[in-house]
């Protein structure tokens, strides 16, 4: 019984590392812009479609697929940034969200035109293998995704908290007009944030799809749901929160799947989100941020 539970938690953490990667992108954009980018998941989907297209039409080379997936996601990210966020006034939060939803639909259409069949193969990064740790097991491709996620978290944390540009991003996120007085170019910060987020998204999409070995147009919707739920669980605007939220979501889903039913797996993630929104609306780490910002707006 305990062994099953621990094994479920290991499986959940492995799968959840993919959710964490998606949540990192969502939380970074929301943290900087204070606006929701609904087209983030579909951007990753279309980027991965371009990767698959290169696999089917150019060469059976996994590095080429990785490169084209990341590059295409970055190009789409720039397109989204220019159309939904740069062109739309900062004050009209709803307009940005609605236009990012419109782009979601547009990206799905483009994906269907690029590769019209419902499902396509996505090449595996390396041959799948089952690693044994005593009574427990882990799939090698998921373990690899977990390690990459931790590495990306460390790199992102160092970038945000140890570099001049990282401080500029945080300053812009905190007080956009005051950041201009420091010589920070808000447009460049926004652009850079989208590039970073798109690279993370491209890597996330590649690793998740590589582990699943297939891609469908529904991946955009799936990535949006999982990323948003993980971000909300961990706390909006918190890097550690995004990672923790993704892992918790993975563990809950894995246990719901094992002890309940495959159908319950997705229902459980939404139930978890509702519960969190009622008990702690700001998420695990976000609550602190909320209080902090409330004090901030009152005093400074």
């Amino acid at each position: 019984m305990i062994t099953d539970f621990v094994q479920n938690c290991i499986d959940g953490i492995m799968v959840g590392s993919g959710y964490s990667l998606l949540a990192l992108g969502f939380t970074l954009v929301f943290g900087v812009l204070k606006r929701l980018n609904l087209s983030y998941g579909p951007s990753i989907m279309l980027g991965a479609y371009v990767g698959t297209w290169s696999f089917l039409n150019i060469a059976d080379n996994i590095w080429l697929v990785l490169l084209t997936t990341i590059c295409a996601t970055v190009v789409i990210g720039i397109y989204v940034e220019q159309l939904c966020f740069r062109a739309v006034s900062k004050e009209t939060t709803i307009a940005s969200m609605v236009s990012s939803f419109a782009i979601w639909m547009q990206l799905e259409e483009i994906a269907l035109h690029l590769l019209p069949e419902r499902t396509y193969p996505f090449p595996a990064f390396f041959d799948s293998g089952l690693l044994e740790f005593g009574p427990f097991t882990a799939r090698s491709e998921y373990l690899f995704m977990f390690v990459v996620m931790l590495l990306l978290l460390l790199i992102l944390h160092a970038f945000i908290y140890r570099t001049r540009i990282g401080l500029a991003i945080r300053a812009y996120s905190d007080h956009p007009s005051a950041s201009a007085y420091m010589g920070i170019d808000g447009s460049s910060v926004l652009f850079l944030a989208f590039i970073i987020v798109s690279i993370i998204g491209g890597i996330a999409g590649f690793l998740i799809l590589s582990a699943d070995s297939q891609i469908t147009p529904f991946f955009g919707l799936w990535a949006t749901f999982k990323g948003l739920i993980a971000m909300m669980l961990g706390g909006i605007g918190s890097l550690s929160g995004a990672v923790l939220g993704g892992l918790i979501l993975g563990v809950i889903e894995a246990n719901a799947f094992w002890y309940g039913d495959p159908v319950i797996r997705d229902i459980s993630s939404f139930m978890l989100l509702f519960t969190m929104l009622i008990i702690r609306p700001g998420g695990i780490f976000g609550h602190k941020i909320e209080i902090h910002q409330k004090i901030a707006s009152e005093r400074v």
Binding site: L167, R170, A171, D174, H175, S177, A178, S179, Y181, I289, H292, Q293, I295, A296, S297, R299, V300
Partner: peptide
């Protein structure tokens, strides 16, 4: 140095 100080509140 703007009116109202405008420090970064969470930094």
């Amino acid at each position: 140095v703007p009116e109202g100080r405008q420090l970064f509140p969470t930094l």
